[in-house]
Design a protein around this nucleic acid. Sequence first.
DNA 1: CTGACTCGTGTTTTT
DNA 2: CACGAGTCAG
Length: 688
Amino acid sequence: MPETFGKDLNPAQREAVEYGEGPLLVVAGAGTGKTTMLAHRVARLVADGARPDRILLLTFTRRAAMEMLQRARRLLENVKRAPTESQHVTNVWGGTFHAVGTRLLRIYGSCVGLPPNFTIIDRADQEDLMNLVRTETLGKKTEGKRFPKKGTCVAIYSRCVNSQAKLYDILAKYYPKLEEYLPELAQIFDAYTQRKIENATLDYDDLLLYWSAMMRHPEIGEKIRSRFDWVLVDEYQDTNRIQAEIVKGLTPDGKGLTVVGDDAQSIYSFRAATVRNILDFPKTFPGAKILPLEENYRSTAAILKATNRVVAQLHERYRKDLFAVRKGGVRPTFCRCRDDDAQTRYVVDLVLEHYENGMPLKEMAVLFRSSSHSLRLETELARRRIPYVKYGGLKFTEAAHVKDLLSFLRIVENPGDFPAGLRLLTLLPGIGPKKARDLMVLLQQAGGNFNVWSSWTPPKNAQELWFPTVALLKQINEPDRPLKEQLAAAIEFYRPILTEKWPLDGDSRLSDLEQLLSVSGNFKSRREMLADFVLDPPASSEEFADKPDIDDDWLNLSTIHSAKGLEWKSVFIIHASDGNIPSDMSTGRQEEIDEELRLFYVAMTRAKDYLYITCPMKYYHANTYWGDAFSTVLPTRFLPTEILNDCFESTRCWDAPNPDDDRDFRNILEEEGLTTEEWIKKQTEDLW
DNA sequence: CTGACTCGTGTTTTT
DNA sequence: CACGAGTCAG
């Protein structure tokens, strides 16, 4: 092995990089150089003669894959021997399970009855389709009952599929109140599945299911298997059962297989991810080598001391504490703030202080549990003209006007795409759900030929727009029409509809569409663009715009989930109050609380040098019709006094004078002579 | 059947 | 408040 690959690695990392073709599980704690290890391993394989196009690198985001391959490429450039064309790392198959599955399904999907022009539907489309089949199969039978909403139906369905569990068990465990609807749910799930097959529309889960099905096909399974000599899977703790089955299908005996993960960072069980995949790895692949990485390079000792204490509270855990390579450091700070305003001020002031001391904004991040938690901060950043980019939350491509526009292309790409068709058709006046459905059925019976729509007689108020609509679709459908022209034509048609639909902010929405038009040149085809927008949507409109109009320095705001795998010099975790961390919605079962704790652990371990955790002690409810004008909260239960005393500097930010109310939580305790526990009890006892 | 209306309910994380 | 589900007049 060339010397360049080893010199920055510790013995454990080096062993992982050099390890041969037997199944390998690397249990990599937070900040232990997992990405470095994987990049080196890919580079090492290529340097030793592996063909990049026979390497499969499955990661959690496309960004992670690109980053690793980038690093591998740089490492290879340092090797004397110049790589030949076939050795080029860009040929590695890298990406998420969903993206790689899509690529394979385009090639081999016909063996499982899938035409190559299938379209992929996102969560909102799934809900629309679920609604459609619900009214079709159950009609008015559900009226008057509290039948689960479409979103809940999709959630239940998805959990069944992803965990490969019986509907009955899922209902009993997660939705006990809905057990009585089991027969109806089973019925609409059947119809939903049937519908997707007929229409060549796949949801996220299908991409995995179909891939898994292909692996079981005697010929095609073998064909796919023999495409790859090496399979590397990152973030293995966040894979679900089907993904594990796919991996098993790719390398039944584990030959050439490397998986990397950390059970303490498993935060996607709501998506049916299971740590069992890591725990059972040795059983699934006998003879597997297990290598732990325990040297933490990222955080200072002071920060690591705190994160180790926090993770030790896990009810169930399988690993020892990490030890710090970086000694010393500044103790993390825990700040009780008067309210959201005080918290905002505290964070912004500190951000500016670090900035003035020479730390670029890019090296700092503000993390939060839920996307809405950053709203107040965003307002303040805008007011003070501090550039920022927000990750997580609603995606650009999920905005109604963007979905409207894309539905024109989707219906042409796949005339069976019901969610797209319904969306598009109901834009027209006089056409509601019923007519739209009938028209889609008509179109499908005609084999997707839009001429059938020409001979349809629209109702009076639809007359003006109907024939232009059909003409537009035919125009988009013309062979060899450039993608850009297709989009431009659709925007032209859609413009008046948009202006009428959103009289207030039509202009900004329109400029979003112009932006869409200008990035369309980056895509090889309509098919690729549509798939990309569903599988890997731009995380922020800034990212989408390619170059932010702010300079090249900005503050990162991110949900904790979206911060996975990233690191910054300074990290702020805001809204660390009980009810947010852990979220009120996930405090039912111990497993749920454990997952919230792992989430908090992931957030804390993103920090390299400075870590600030803030908690507003009071929340105002501007528009509450149910309850008080404000509520008093407690800091997260994951930072009990002992940990705060041992590992944190505690401070307060109370500088938002509010004459209305001076009683804070501490005062209440003092006045009433209660302990915290007693106070909580008192808050809840009335509920019974 | 569509679209404007009223009424009730509830609030996370994402490929 | 915001959104979905149900109601009812054309």
